[in-house]
């Protein structure tokens, strides 16, 4: 999607591009780049408040008017869903500021590991030769099981307020600590609907992501679904639908 240019130096939108020696706020550092947006780490208001800057640069190949409209739409859609989640008590990054003309969104900084990293740490034995390794596994297994339960509850909470994440992978969830709350991030593809189909597809995407993360993780995913099903009224129906989705894949309409 991005024009094939080896541009490492990305230009930032105002006001993040005007950094002088007198400015105490840190120059934003690039964290990750997707097809649509660049994510930087920077600060908000004071140098001690870290935050994430999600910048959607304009695409030179799009007509300027269309480009502006799409950027605006996508930033606002993401921000609206995040504010809605915050209002309903789902843990997501808070929206700190937004400028849809300049194409950026400032989000609360969420510390922690991604679920993917947690799983890797859990499931990769550091010392396979140690005979006591198997015995050490038990407390960790319980911890891991609880982590799965909390993932299920978090996704259920999100779905119960009619929000579909749209890109639910193990990289989009951050537990602030292994025992702590799980925060969902990256709502760039989120939509608001209450249809079981959408919920089921959301779960299916997460299931595939689990399977891709680690062979043992597929087994663990059952714990996620168990917690999910019991957590809210529509949970069981969504799970039923998930079985259909598994058989045919993510896309229902066979167009495209």
């Amino acid at each position: 999607m991005m024009p094939a240019q080896p541009s490492i130096q990305v230009s930032l939108p105002p006001p993040f591009n005007s950094h002088s020696v007198h400015d105490q706020s840190k120059t934003p550092t690039l964290l990750t780049q997707g097809a649509e947006a660049l994510v930087f780490r920077t600060t908000f208001l004071t140098p001690s408040t870290p935050c994430a800057l999600k910048y959607r640069p304009s695409k030179p190949y799009r007509h300027p008017i269309l480009d502006k409209g799409l950027t605006r739409q996508r930033i606002l859609a993401e921000a609206r869903v995040l504010v809605r989640c915050r209002k309903e008590g789902v843990r997501v990054p808070a929206v700190l500021a937004a400028d849809w003309e300049a194409g950026w969104l400032l989000l609360e900084w969420i510390p922690g590991w991604t679920i993917r990293r947690c799983l890797d740490a859990f499931l990769t034995p550091e010392d396979t030769e140690s005979p006591s390794h198997r015995n050490d596994d038990n407390p960790r297994a319980a911890e891991l099981k609880d982590l799965m339960r909390r993932i299920g509850l978090t996704v259920a909470h999100l779905h119960s307020i009619g929000v579909i994440h749209g890109d639910l992978t193990t990289n989009q969830q951050l537990p602030t600590s292994l025992a702590g709350t799980i925060t969902l991030i990256d709502f760039g593809l989120a939509v608001q609907t209450t249809q079981d189909e959408d919920k089921a597809v959301d779960l299916y995407v997460l299931e595939r992501a689990f399977a891709a993360t680690h062979p043992a993780a597929e087994e663990l995913f059952r714990g996620v679904l168990e917690a999910y099903g019991g957590a809210y009224n529509g949970g069981r129906q969504a799970l039923k639908r998930l079985e259909d989705v598994r058989l045919r894949g993510r896309k229902r309409s066979m167009i495209g």
Binding site: A79, V83, R86, K87, G89, V95, A98, W100
Partner: peptide, 16 residues
């Protein structure tokens, strides 16, 4: 903190 986060979000979205 949560009230503050929601307020910041509403302020940021104003005019959209």
């Amino acid at each position: 903190n949560d009230l503050e986060s929601i307020i910041l979000g509403l302020m940021a979205l104003k005019g959209s």
